[in-house]
């Protein structure tokens, strides 16, 4: 089992690198052969990644969430998985390179620095915590993808406004589709964050007797969650269109990242395990 983990640890950055390269090649050249094969490559990558995560869980006897580099691997997987589902649902295949690049980056860092962790605090062996972390990470993947599509929207928007009809104009889907992809990712991210928060609230009193709802990380996450909720509601009732939705998504993402950095690095919180 350990050998399989070691091999997959080396193989995964290579697989994500290949998937990213094929998606990028297809973005520039739009060949029929790569258009079909890139999805297969991504599926195979995800399959091996899922196997790798399960193998780690069995071998080390805890969910793979006990250190930053295990978390990085889950982020890589959840971003790629979220994109894969989005691509299957919408059949829009031209934007994968911009998303899978993040999976490649996270997995590369994870593979380089991840260690064998047999001994971990008891609190991290809890399966409810595993579910909480996975749903939170998938939620953050959703808002990351939403931000990437938002960025692509802004680039295409600017290109059209300034009469630049080059590669970006020819290869990217329409602004309306990019807006929808960004919005759907945002909704998926929001729902998964909601799940993570609910699980956290259930599990918190049992795990930490000294917990506090005023904890900076909880407050920060709740503000991000509430902001996205308001944005989604505004879009649904018809007060946000086009560029405004995208700006909202990008600001929400930046705020979310800032909140994570501040609460993880600067503020004192019980919600820190590493």
């Amino acid at each position: 089992m350990l050998d399989s983990i070691k091999i997959l640890n080396l193989l995964l950055p290579f697989l994500y690198g290949t998937a990213f390269s094929v998606y990028l090649f297809d973005f520039f050249h739009e060949k029929k052969s790569t258009n079909n094969s890139k999805r297969v490559i991504l599926f195979v990558t995800l399959f091996f990644h899922a196997f790798y995560l399960v193998a780690r869980m069995i071998e080390y006897n805890h969910p793979p969430i006990t250190n930053k580099f295990e978390i990085f691997s889950i982020i890589a997987c959840s971003i790629a998985f979220s994109y894969f589902i989005l691509e299957l649902l919408t059949d829009i295949r031209g934007t994968g390179a911009f998303i899978i690049f993040f999976s490649f980056l996270f997995q590369l860092v994870s593979s380089l620095f991840v260690a064998d962790t047999y001994i971990v605090p008891d609190v991290l062996r809890n399966n409810l915590l595993g579910l909480h972390v996975v749903s939170a990470l998938l939620g953050y993947s959703g808002i990351t993808i939403s931000a990437v599509y938002g960025l692509l929207f802004m680039i295409l928007y600017k290109n059209i406004k300034t009469n630049k009809f080059g590669l970006v104009f020819n290869r990217l889907p329409s602004l309306e589709i990019l807006e929808k992809l960004s919005f759907y990712s945002m909704v998926i991210g929001f729902v998964l964050l909601t799940v993570a928060i609910v699980i956290g609230i259930i599990w918190l009193p049992a795990a930490f007797p000294n917990y506090s709802y005023a904890d900076p990380k909880l407050v920060g996450t709740f503000i991000v969650w509430a902001a996205y909720g308001v944005g989604i509601a505004m879009k649904l009732i018809g007060n946000l269109y086009g560029k405004k939705v995208i700006i909202f998504s990008l600001i929400g993402f930046l705020f979310g990242i800032m909140s994570l950095i501040v609460t993880n690095s600067l503020a004192k919180t019980f919600h820190s395990f590493y």
């Binding site: 295409l156 059209i160 104009f169 889907p173 329409s174 602004l175 309306e176 589709i177 929808k180």
Partner: peptide, 9 residues
């Protein structure tokens, strides 16, 4: 063609 790059449906 430009219209199609802005609207999808």
């Amino acid at each position: 063609q430009v219209v199609e790059k802005i609207f999808s449906s």
